[in-house]
């Protein structure tokens, strides 16, 4: 059985170490916060906050307190607020240890595409280009194939890039792969999935 969304998030949470400052993207990456357990992780929200807390209780929403997905959230005892220029200074400056992001395509060079599909609605890259350029370790969490069954782990990205040679590790529903010299290396296979299945679902070159 391939991993479901929550199992992928739980696997991504294993990547995070005590004391890390981390930025989580929208979608499955947001679920990673549910699986960090006792680890001392500080979540950054790029609209200007370190120490992001959970959603507020009903009736306690504060319009002045949102995350980068514009959702109402809460603060913690460790929370600090700052402006957008300061926020991206710490991102660009390499102060954030890891970013966990969703993606449309990743290729064997570590190129990432996750912001635009030409001809379809164009919403903008938000902070994604800054994050992948500046954060020390970029972990992508996504399904291995798209809804048509085609691989999202490609030899070369076809969509407009978010960043070039930026991805370090990819966690999919089938397993975990690292971007290494010459292609992708299988690090872990989801329980019940075979190596042949991962290879068949991967267009990118797999190195041993």
């Amino acid at each position: 059985m391939p991993w479901d969304r929550n199992q992928m998030a739980a696997r991504a949470a294993q990547e995070l170490e005590d004391g890390m400052y981390v930025n989580l993207g929208i979608g499955i990456p947001t679920l990673v916060a549910n699986y960090v357990g006792d680890k001392d992780i500080t979540l950054q929200s790029e609209n200007g906050m370190l120490g992001m807390g959970p959603f507020p209780f009903e009736g306690e929403e504060d319009p002045d307190l949102i995350n980068a997905g514009k959702q109402t959230i809460t603060e913690l005892s460790r929370t600090a607020y700052f402006d957008s220029a300061t926020s991206f200074a710490m991102i660009r400056g390499g102060k954030i240890a890891a970013a966990v992001l969703g993606a449309m395509e990743v290729d064997e060079e570590g190129d990432l595409a996750n912001w635009m599909i030409p001809g379809v609605l164009v919403k903008g890259m938000g902070g994604a280009m800054d994050l992948v350029a500046g954060v020390r370790r970029v972990i992508v969490v996504m399904d291995h194939t798209n809804k048509h069954g085609k691989s999202k782990l490609l030899k070369k990205c076809t969509l407009p890039l978010t960043g070039k040679k930026v991805v370090n590790r990819i966690i999919t529903n089938l397993g975990v792969l690292d971007v290494v010299d010459g292609g992708l290396k299988i690090i872990e296979i989801a329980e019940g999935v075979t190596e042949d299945e991962i290879r068949a679902a991967t267009e990118a070159n797999i190195v041993n």
Binding site: F57, E58, D64, I66, T72
Partner: peptide
């Protein structure tokens, strides 16, 4: 007015 764009909450 301070409108909220995405009202997300959790249950007590």
């Amino acid at each position: 007015e301070k409108r909220i764009e995405q009202r997300t909450t959790r249950k007590k």
